[in-house]
Amino acid sequence: MSRDMGKAAIQRMKPAKLRPGDAVRLVSPASTPDKDGVMHSIRLLESLGLRVELGRHVFDRLGYLAGRDVDRQADLNEALRDPEVRAIIATRGGKGAYRIADGLDFAAMRADPKPLVGFSEVTILHLALWHHAGVPGIHGACWDTDRFGEESAQSFKRSLLSAEPITVCSKPNETTAALTSHGRASGVLLGGNLDMIAAAAGWVLPRLAGAILLIEDVEKGLGHIDRHLTRLLKAGCLDGIRGIAVGQFVGFNESQGWSVVDVLRDRLFPLGVPILGGLPLGHGPDAVAIPVGTKAVLDADQGTLTVEPAVQ
């Protein structure tokens, strides 16, 4: 299959927004979740009138993985194939989703689109599903008000229950706000966790020409960020992108007088496209949920990223 999904992918029917009584299934495609955290998610989803199901291997454990690859993949594919399941929610990120990203039932997703919710490690699953099925997802998590704050909780609900465009505003207190340049760009918003974007290059990374690239990351050395961006640049993966939306880069220490902002500026500014930093997307406080795989408008001058919904 061609790496360029083109207009056919963008024009595909979006999944339906969730309604009371719909079934959602929690799966663990990467690392094992905390049981208390899963219970919080169940209570939140049930409070929205949704029926919550658990994948058979949600709490499995194999080293840093939520069980064997074959079982984690089976849970995800069973959810994709089940016509009763109207959304799939990853219990957490961690490690290991990259091991099963090319084994998803893409035909089932094309035949019966449903949103996948997750971020961080789950980015590679969003990329694979867009690459092979052209179905958008939700970069976010099952955030509740008590643990994550009202803004995060409302964004999660809005992403699944509303078919209205979502606008995210740059926040001056976010570290990456210093990267904001000028200009306006439009295109499909693709990406998420930078580590997973780089890991996807060459096999499940869609063609990014004409897209707005979303990046965020957490707790890595500056050299990791440099290597990831350099790999994407040298491989031509960033050729033709129209803009860059920069989310939260959390837990990075300075090295030899450079910060993570210096590294990002050094690698990204030569692309000559509008850059909007300071977006509350990723692993930081008050992060919000946002569709990926839908059309977006990035306005660096106004400090806004407006994205079409992933559901209809």
Rank of each mutant, 00 (worst) to 15 (best):
M1Q: 11
S2N: 15
R3N: 11
D4R: 11
K7A: 14
A8H: 10
A9C: 10
I10Y: 00
K17E: 05
L18W: 04
P20F: 05
P20H: 09
V24H: 01
A30G: 09
T32C: 12
K35N: 09
G37H: 13
G37P: 09
G37V: 04
H40G: 04
L44E: 10
L48D: 10
V52S: 07
L54Q: 14
F59L: 11
F59G: 06
D60G: 04
L62K: 13
Y64G: 10
A66E: 04
L76Q: 00
N77V: 09
E78I: 02
E78N: 14
R81G: 02
E84G: 15
E84Y: 01
I88Q: 03
A90N: 06
R92N: 15
R92P: 00
G94H: 10
Y98N: 12
R99S: 12
R99F: 07
I100Y: 07
A101Q: 06
A108I: 02
A111D: 08
D112P: 00
D112I: 00
K114N: 06
L116Y: 01
G118W: 05
V122K: 03
V122C: 04
T123M: 10
L125C: 06
H126Y: 11
L127Q: 06
L129E: 04
G134W: 00
G134Q: 00
G134T: 00
G137A: 09
G137I: 02
I138A: 02
C142R: 01
D144F: 04
D146P: 04
F148K: 06
E150F: 12
E150Y: 11
S155M: 09
F156W: 15
R158C: 08
S159G: 10
L161Q: 06
S162D: 15
S162T: 12
E164W: 03
E164D: 14
S170C: 08
N173I: 07
T180C: 12
R184Y: 08
V188P: 01
N193K: 12
A200V: 07
A201R: 13
G210F: 03
L214C: 05
I215E: 02
E216F: 15
E219V: 08
E219G: 01
R227Q: 14
L229V: 09
T230C: 09
A235E: 15
L238F: 09
D239G: 05
G240Y: 03
I241E: 07
G247T: 07
Q248V: 05
N253V: 03
E254R: 15
W258T: 11
S259N: 11
R267K: 15
F269P: 00
L271P: 03
L271K: 07
L281M: 05
L281S: 02
H283V: 06
V288Y: 09
A289S: 15
I290M: 14
L298E: 05
L298W: 03
D299F: 04
A300Q: 09
